[in-house]
Design a protein around this nucleic acid. Structure first.
Lengths: 217, 217
DNA sequence: GCCAACGATACTGTATACAGTTTTGTGGGA
DNA sequence: TCCCACAAAACTGTATACAGTATCGTTGGC
């Protein structure tokens, strides 16, 4: 017999707060530098500081918030150097993703990618913040399709940081360009062109940086 | 005036427990699968469960312990597939490290590397567990010299996991071979041979895997 | 006016209490 | 013997209390 659904199971508290804060940060509802006092966050979500601290620890480990000792956590505001570092690593990691995917991607994976890009296209005009999030998740989906959990995790990490960086610049057409470039990446993978896919990804990432008017990595 | 040294400053508790547990795990004092009940760990180190939970959270985020909901944390025991994943990512990340270092390494960096390898040589015969740790830290040091904090962090991450994996196999001569190979890597970097350094690193990592009698990545 | 000392306020770090969940051990029936 | 039910023990999840630390405004001296 199926267990009765509960409104929140034990252990889900931190996860929920983490997800909500993360969404707020990437969606610019919390701008870089915003302070996140534990008590305030706890009150806002109706939980205790204990739960908030667990969520903050995770956000800090992903670089989305800074959390110095004995001081309030605050939303990270990456410097130019840090931004360059993030995108430099994306070149490394996502280059490896393309190499691996060109060999092993199957029609089902291609279909998932195309479906995702379709959602990007839908959100692109109406929900700019969500468009940024979806554009990032496309890259995470690519990484997941490699079948390497670790690679997927690191890509997810740098993509989160990228979203925070890009949210700060607030270019609204970023996503439109991303859609056509994402489709191009899929096409290259589909025909097994690993070299082309790697190069296209490198160019795509440079475009993303360029549109955000950051100096190239 | 300098502040009076304290035995432990607030906020240092979790960090200390984290470091001690990590050392015990990598040093095989805690073997894979060992249970880590919060209360037991807390009693052992003379702190409260609060502190232990923070340390466990960090270890779990680095993949050294598994921490399912409502269950005791336990030391991870990586499967063959997970081990292959770890070393596959090391190829990607450390290949990038060599590329970057061949351009930018300075005599001071070379000196630090050589000094480190000297310590590896000293520990190699007498303290096998410490030799494994030092061999890992050589790779972390390489990554740090690139000047990319993020790259350094990810390398540190996969090296930790590797240490856990290698500790399980318990090959005692691993470290001796590592010393000569590490010196070879330094020599290649010193003469600016990026391609050679990248290839040598790839071979080195394959050797490490081979000595541990794991299937090649 | 300017700056240092100081006190109030806000906030974090850690311990602990209690409730809820999982695990373990034990006895009874087939 | 095997296996299920069930109760006891072990353990985690969360809230809360209290002590310690940073932050900020104010006051007093110059």
């Amino acid at each position: 017999m199926a267990k009765q659904e509960r409104r929140s199971r034990p252990g889900d508290g931190p996860e929920r707060i983490y997800a909500e804060l993360r969404r707020s940060i990437i969606g610019q509802e919390l701008s870089p530098g915003s302070r996140l006092p534990e008590a305030a966050v706890a009150a806002r979500f109706g939980v205790s500081r204990t739960v908030v601290r667990a969520a903050l620890a995770r956000l800090a480990s992903e670089g989305l918030v800074l959390w110095p000792n004995n001081r309030s956590a605050k939303v990270a505001s990456p410097s130019l150097a840090e931004s360059a570092d993030v995108f430099g690593l994306r070149q490394v990691l996502e280059g490896a993703v393309m190499d691996r995917l060109a060999d092993r991607i199957d029609p089902q994976g291609v279909a998932r990618l195309r479906a995702h890009v379709a959602r990007e296209g839908t959100a692109e005009a109406t929900h700019p913040a969500e468009a940024i999030r979806l554009a990032g998740e496309f890259h995470v989906l690519l990484a997941e399709l490699t079948g390497s959990p670790l690679l997927a995790r690191y890509v997810s990490d740098v993509v989160s940081r990228s979203s925070l960086i890009l949210a700060g610049t607030g270019r609204s057409h970023s996503s439109q360009c991303a859609v056509t470039e994402h489709l191009e990446l899929i096409a290259l993978l589909e025909r097994g062109d690993g070299t082309g896919a790697r190069q296209a990804m490198a160019a795509h990432l440079l475009h993303v940086v360029g549109r955000a008017s950051l100096p190239p990595a």
